[in-house]
Design a protein around this nucleic acid. Sequence first.
RNA 1: GGGAGAGUGGCGAAAUGGCAGACGCGCGGGUCUUAGGAACCCGUGGGGCAACCCGUGCGGGUUCGAUUCCCGCCUCUCCCA
Length: 785
Amino acid sequence: MGHFRNYGIGDAVCRWMLMNGKDVLHPFGWDAFGLPAENAAIKRGIPPGEWTRRNIAVSRSTLESVGMGYDWEREIATCEPDYYHFTQWIFLLLHERGLVYRKNAPVNWCGDCATVLANEQVQDGCCWRCDGEVVKRDLEQWYIKITDYAQRLLDGLDDLPRWPRSTITSQRNWIGRSEGAELRFAVAGAPEGCPDVLEVFTTRPDTLWGVTFLAVAPESQFGRWCAQHGPNAAEVAAYAAAASKKTEIERLAASREKTGVLSGLSAVHPTTGESLPVFVADYVLASYGTGYVMAVPAHDERDFAFATARGLPIRIVIQNADASLSPDAMENAFSAAGRMVASGPFDGRDSQEAMGDLLSWLDAQGIGKARVTFRLRDWLISRQRYWGCPIPMVHCAACGVVPVPKEALPVTLPEGVTNWIPEGRSPLADVAEFVATTCPRCGAAAQRDVDTMDTFIDSSWYHIRYTDPHNADLPFDPVQANAWLPVDLYIGGAEHANGHLLYFRFITKVLHDAGYLDVEEPVVRLFHHGMVADADGHTMSKSRGNVISPIDNAQAVGTDAARIAMFFFAPSADEIRWSEKGAKGAAKLVQRLYSLFTDCADWLKSLPADVRGANDASDVARDVRRHAHELLRRLDHAFAGDLALNPAVAGIYELLNVFPPPASAMAAGDADQRCYAEALRILSLAIAPLTPHLAEEVHEMLGGEDSVFRARWPAVDPGALARDEVEIAVQVRGKLKARITVAADADEATVRAAALADAAVQRALAGREIRKVIVVPGRLVNIVA
RNA sequence: GGGAGAGUGGCGAAAUGGCAGACGCGCGGGUCUUAGGAACCCGUGGGGCAACCCGUGCGGGUUCGAUUCCCGCCUCUCCCA
């Protein structure tokens, strides 16, 4: 039901847009490569391709049977060669533009399963399958340089006013821009082969004079050298081996005790010339910054924790306002800005104010320079898995790594292979006829790359493929893409905030830079729908086994009832709990609507469609009319805004509740009949986005020959919403004391007089002097006494 | 540890500076000459015989007026470390 909710919301918006005369592209695609499909197939012993295609067929027929109005002409599946042909094309484009490179880097490795694991498959340092120990192992991997776009991905967030604030913030934090400096520390008497300079990144160059030691990541170049050749190699190597078993989360946890071992070498402080011990410590990560940290115990929490545990010196170089900091009395690091002390030429300066001068000075002294770094890392796209898009690269003994020419695409994933179970190497490596090829450059015998791509690359450009899904020469025709893009509304879960939603912004920008797209941002309006939980509040998931299939549900209460139940339970952005009783209530509503239209159809067909004379109608008839227009107003508001359809569904109930029994409606006076008829005609159209099947049937019942979705969406008549008389609340000192009824256009003096004349108000005012009377037209009077 | 969001009847919720609880579910009562797990009608935040009083997680503030805005706290959910 989770997907059903997502699709149902989009389907309703689409239908509303259609009735408002818009050209709507409402496509559907299958993100079909990847681990979930592959793992399910392995579990059942069915080849992944067969399993996936079978599932797609079942799911498509489910979607059709529950009435989702997709444009199936534009259906795509990322696992089919006509699609991944162009995933490979985009990979080659990235390569041409210098955004693809290979790097040797540590990956998660489960020894018992003999396989590489994705990060989310490592739980508490153990394999999610066998609970075996997971270690880091070095592998040559393909990376995409998304970090080249870090600043633009950050800046682009300012142009997305219709994205949820939480997602914008999340991406901003994920990209994690930090300004600081890169400073150089010479290694004292660096032995042969050992790095002789450690470049540290720091956001606090103003604390340079407070450095009392350096800390390096075990995986850093310097850390590795020390583990092999350093004066304290044995201890460092043992420490590094232990560290490699820990997750980043464990290593960075603030609560954990900071550990480290002496590297046996020391560095030279660039301004004082002082000798600084260098520790190998696992609270430093090689993948962030440079892997080397200048430690300032007085002004950094982690360095403080490490220094106090080790009895290392603490040197204060930033003083607080009353200059009360002293090394002996400190219980925490002082990490705020303040006045610089014991800092050479910068003594007495404010640390923030001096930053610009400090950076120039450091540059002039050759110590280091200003630098901006990002938390965002390059995108590791290699997977040692079978069920994914092959990487279009060839390894040639003579020419090195050579891209497959675009004309030779696609590099087809061999589907006849039997051994697609991961055993610690890419399954494709065993498929001789796949691996064996010739070098595109020199023609000699060569080998294909045997890794496949991360599925996030498949889904990073599908929004563009929809605009031109059958193009056999290019991923898309720029004319088509530019005509449709950007996407006006994109509905998806919030869990993709830092994954998919960042990657497809990135790829869109690359395609823009390469001249294929006008837009730089793929989506104007992003909406996160809420989860669907079961009656006990558990999110529906296959692993929990509490999934309710939409098709079962449709059989139980009907698709329209299931849709309207979903819309009515809560705003679309909130979590809902699926409730059988609630769904039954919705089925009852559908039945009430159906009965009403059945009873009134012939009468309605016999009446003219205009509402002349509505102002002469009875109060009841005008009330019915007002409810119909109010329903329209609520629907327009929801569809154009936050997609919270629950008050609109309530509006249907309210209209039905005020509508007279059909027999008396048909027997009413002429003006009244016109009001009732208009209300029913509006209702018949207003329900179309919510309950499309019922709406089509009613439309036909009322003599419509074409689809209801070719009918025009009715406009709200502000005159119909107005009332002659309004009820006004009367408060005395902010407390409600009475309600009075006055003409809607009554002037302030009249309203005020009526309020003061009320008996309950008089009682409340007894013995008090009236100081002030506030009149809010049409709403309330507040008497301050 | 940091960030984002949420807290309203028995339950899902509405109202976003102006009558708290619309609408639905559930529950209680009634009608349909038997039954009701159907349908329809009436009632349904708490207290009080009543007039009235109290009530939107807790404590403060701004305002004629606060569920709504501001400050502090508590609890829960999600994301990141």
